[in-house]
Amino acid sequence: MKSTQPLIDTHLHLASEQFNEDRRAVIERAIEAGIAAMVEIGYDLASSHAAVALANAHPAIFAVVGIQPNHLHDLPSDWIDQIRKLAAHPKVVAIGEIGLDYYWMKSPPSAQEEAFRAQLALAAELGLPVVIHSREAMPETIAVLRDAARGPGVMHSFSGDWTAAQECLELGFYLSFSGPLTFPKSAALHEVVQQAPLERLLIETDSPYLSPHPHRGQRNEPSRLVYIAQKLADLRGLSLAELGPQLWQNTLRAFPRMAETLG
């Protein structure tokens, strides 16, 4: 499947070992499918360094750096300074993915919130947006954001209902949708896409995870962003040709540093 409109995959993990054998081919397939830019997301120090390296090596790739709540153990004492230094790279467009995860609960809620708030403060200091990870912790995530941050920012792979979506929108955040949007039983997500302002919607693959229908259960890759874009277009009663330019502008507003390169 190919898009005639250039699209941006706002969240993926190309540095994953699942791409070690064919990373270059995956990037080439994405570009051939109409994916004009990709945002490589860090989740710990190693992946944040790798994200910057990928962005440095590929014109179409940008980076986001940060510590995800499932990767808080064994951090060095200077971890926030390391993220600050990485964020100085001109192709780093946000701090993330950061937030709360009460599904895996690999760190206690207090430790998760402390790291979350520290990185929200760093993003504010640097004038960068944030990319938010929230799993089984949407009310708690929104409470922290209401207290410590306002947009711009992105709710990664949004999985909440319309009530949660409204709260995120009121805080100035964009809602980003991934493979589950294409699943027939995702009625709550379909409602959010139909109700939310079109100018606040983004799309992502979260590759290598969350592959869309009809590739569910397979390793995901950025070329499959087109399936997500098409589903979003269908839900809004638009053609992909009509939707594509809107998604492009939404992404550049969400990540102003990208706009400096992509216009």
Rank of each mutant, 00 (worst) to 15 (best):
S110D: 13
S110K: 14
A111P: 02
I83S: 02
I98T: 06
I95T: 11
I83F: 07
D81H: 07
Y103M: 03
V92D: 04
R84F: 04
Q68W: 01
V64M: 01
G96L: 07
I95Y: 08
I80E: 08
P90Q: 05
G66Y: 06
D101C: 09
E97Q: 14
A111C: 06
S110H: 07
I98F: 10
I95W: 09
I83V: 15
I80V: 13
A57D: 13
S110G: 02
P109E: 02
F116G: 12
H71F: 11
H71G: 03
Q82E: 11
A63V: 05
Y103K: 14
D78I: 05
G96N: 10
L72M: 10
L72K: 09
N56D: 09
K106M: 10
L72Q: 13
S77N: 09
I67F: 00
Q68R: 05
P109S: 09
S110M: 03
K91P: 00
D74Y: 08
Q82P: 01
D78Q: 10
V64R: 02
Q112W: 07
W79T: 05
I80F: 03
P69I: 04
H58K: 13
W79Y: 15
L75M: 14
E114Q: 02
H73P: 00
A115D: 00
K106Q: 14
Q112V: 07
I83L: 15
D74L: 01
A115T: 02
N56T: 15
A57V: 08
A88S: 12
I61Y: 07
V93I: 15
Y102S: 12
K85Y: 04
F62C: 07
D81Q: 09
P108C: 11
Q112G: 02
M105S: 15
I95D: 06
V64Y: 00
G66H: 06
Y102F: 15
G66P: 05
H71S: 11
K106H: 14
I67Q: 01
Q68L: 00
F116M: 06
W104P: 04
I80H: 10
L100H: 07
E97I: 15
D101E: 11
P90V: 03
E113R: 15
D101H: 14
L100N: 08
I95N: 11
S77I: 02
E97F: 14
F116I: 14
F62N: 11
N56E: 15
E113Q: 15
N56K: 14
D101R: 14
L100D: 07
L86E: 00
I98E: 08
D74E: 12
S107L: 08
A63P: 10
E97P: 13
D78F: 08
A63K: 08
W79K: 03
H89G: 03
D74W: 06
P109Y: 07
H73T: 09
H58F: 15
F62Q: 10
K91Y: 02
P59H: 14
A60V: 15
I95A: 10
Q82G: 03
R84N: 10
F62V: 13
I98C: 11
P90Y: 03
V65R: 04
Q112N: 03
Y103V: 09
P108K: 14
W79A: 06
E113V: 12
A87L: 03
P90C: 04
I98D: 01
V65G: 01
